[in-house]
Nucleic acid binder design. Structure first.
Lengths: 156, 156
DNA sequence: AGTGAAAATAAGAACCC
DNA sequence: GGGTTCTTATTTTCACT
């Protein structure tokens, strides 16, 4: 698992992925060279999977978000995989989740306005044969947790 | 809005937030100094809101995810804000969304195992007075879109 | 595994078009 | 607004503990 130093590195980099190695080392109390080796190991072990700039959807001209619950039938592997690929291929999609439940997918989208959302739903969702149900909920507020911590910290 | 160069910078940094300014400049075909000014402006304008390392939930010992739909009553500002703050304060939470619909919130959580999820629900959700309904769906697959593009690109 | 010092590289500022 | 050059700072390798 992750020791205290690894956990600290992961925590700091979730807060600011552009921290210089020097500053990061200072924050987690190890030498810069050690810090570099640790961080590289975390990437190679697949703990850190990437570094992403976070953008403001409003600034991108897409201030309106919605959560779309979709039921597809038949609920088979081929249909599920094809639908997921289809959804992730659309620029409006922020995330898509395949879940166990009456609705098979929850899709988070960001669009320019209500008209855009309407077109998205009518032209690209309800036109699909496998889509048997659609529940669209507008998003008032959406928050992501800044830093995710390892199990040990969660189960305290 | 964003011109083509800004859009390219935003795209590249969503892919890899640790790109050096030099490499970034090469990819978007401008001089390093120009690129530096552009990127700084994008931050100051609030287009780029941060740089985050992405971590693997399995590697953090939290391989099990669920989507929890929650109804709270009364559906007033105080109750909504307090519940949102409460949910975001929990280490299990990945994201929380306040939506318009029969369910007021959609909460995405990652936990160690089913027992952990059961405890979370019974000890920290159903115990809350304002929570009047709870629908928990296990997550089979969860995908985020790597790069979000500006409206112009979306409405093509 | 962790550290310190030295060489390679990039960031950032000032200046010019 | 964009490009070039130069100084300063940082990254990264390597020999050592």
């Amino acid at each position: 698992m992750l020791d205290a130093i690894d956990a600290a590195i992961v925590r700091e980099l979730q807060n600011d992925a552009r921290l210089s190695n020097k500053d990061l080392a200072a924050r987690v109390n190890v030498a810069p060279s050690t810090c570099l080796v640790r961080q590289r190991a975390l990437r190679e072990r697949g703990v850190i999977t990437g570094y992403r700039a976070e953008v403001d959807l409003g600034a991108l001209g897409r201030p309106l978000q919605a959560m779309i619950a979709v039921q597809v039938r038949p609920h088979t592997r081929v249909v599920v995989e094809a639908f997921l690929a289809y959804v992730l291929d659309q620029p409006e999609t922020i995330m898509a989740t395949h879940v166990a439940g009456p609705d098979d997918f929850i899709v988070h989208v960001a669009v320019a306005d209500a008209t855009h959302l309407q077109r998205l739903l009518l032209d690209r969702y309800t036109t699909r044969k496998e889509v048997t149900q659609l529940h669209t909920n507008l998003v008032f507020e959406h928050h992501r947790r800044r830093t995710l911590v390892p199990t040990a910290d969660v189960l305290s």
